[in-house]
Design a protein around this nucleic acid. Structure first.
Length: 320
DNA sequence: CTCCAGGTTCCGG
DNA sequence: CCGGAACATGGA
């Protein structure tokens, strides 16, 4: 592979004058998969790479085979953010050996669980409830553009995720205007608690998984599922196993097929025991595989809808 | 128009 | 502990 061309250096160059490109050798890492699997929502494709923020730092990363290209000075940040130190081979070896898990592991080769900033992760997953991945990203970008600090890289504007203190200064209507819906109230309340120090996100780092989950659930809008996402994607608790509608579908269809009385508690207990200490990785692989490789749910053909049934309903739209 | 999306909370058995 | 219902909004 050829080294980065001079043109790349120029385009990648930062305003501070340090425009040298560095290459990080990576093994068992897929940048695109790791950014597009639904664990983080703000990275945008740019050229052959991605543009995004790691905390307050605007970053451009590009993967070419086993090399990760970035600006000089960002290496350590990127190494940590993308969890290049996670023992991916051991992690995959630890997975249970069943057909569904094997297929998901093959489908998700190189996907890593990244280390996200605490509040950013808490807040984005508060906004995630009952939302499609694309819409979560949309909300994230709106919040950043309106209330985050701006940076420029490669001629593009990038915005940091607003801090809890910045959110705490807003009104609920401000957040509703970002199409947050009912999540505006809980996000604002959570921001105020964090800003006031009533919940200490940094302090949670030293708690065991159970205590940390319980503490996170004190935040409005944070239930067991969101807490597990935060534990997994921000606190590096790789055993945390978030159960959303997709994973529930997988569990019920694959591991509880035909069984009755499949309650939330049984799913939780089974997942904890079956997937083990790297359950979070197993969960993310199963999640991504199910979302992209499972057949779309066929519309129940029970009663054919009349083609003319709704003909006259939406005709008059000249209000105001 | 209908259906559903990386849920949480509150309420009654 | 368990099931239901309300809660907003925008794609498909």
């Amino acid at each position: 592979m050829k080294a980065a061309r001079a043109g790349d250096e120029q385009r990648l160059g930062r305003a501070d004058g340090h425009s040298r490109i560095r290459s990080i050798a990576v093994d068992r890492f897929d940048l695109r998969l790791s950014l597009q699997c639904g664990q983080v929502f703000h990275w945008v494709p740019e050229g052959d790479g991605y543009l995004g923020m790691i905390g307050e730092a605007p970053v451009y990363v590009r993967q070419v085979g086993g090399l990760l290209h970035c600006s000089a000075g960002d290496e350590a940040l990127i190494h940590r953010y993308f969890a290049l130190d996670h023992p991916l081979e051991s992690i995959c070896t630890s997975f249970p050996k069943d057909d569904a898990m094997n297929a998901a592991a093959a489908f998700c080769e190189g996907m890593r669980i990244i280390r996200q900033p605490l509040w950013e992760c808490v807040a984005t997953f508060i906004t995630s409830s009952m939302k499609q991945v694309t819409h979560i990203a949309q909300i994230s970008h709106t919040l950043r553009e309106r209330y985050g600090e701006a940076r420029t890289l490669r001629g593009r504007k990038l915005y940091a995720y607003p801090s809890a203190a910045e959110f705490a200064k807003l009104e609920e209507t401000d957040l509703r205007a970002c199409s947050l819906g009912y999540r505006a109230k809980t996000l604002l309340a959570a921001a105020k608690m964090v800003a006031a120090g009533e919940v200490d996100l940094d302090g949670i780092s030293t708690m065991d998984d159970e205590a940390a989950r319980k503490e996170l659930c004190r935040l409005p809008g944070v239930g067991e599922k969101v807490a597990n996402c935060v534990l997994l994607f921000a606190y590096e608790r790789l055993a945390a196993f978030p159960i959303d509608v997709w994973i529930e579908r997988v569990l019920v269809e694959i591991y509880f097929k035909g069984r009755r009385n499949v309650t939330a508690k049984r799913l939780r207990d089974f997942s904890h025991d079956y997937f083990g200490s790297y359950g979070g990785y197993a969960q993310q692989y199963l999640f991504h595989h199910a979302r992209h490789a499972w057949p779309k749910k066929a519309k129940a053909p029970g009663k054919a809808r009349s083609a003319v049934a709704s003909k006259h309903v939406c005709e008059e739209s000249g209000k105001e």
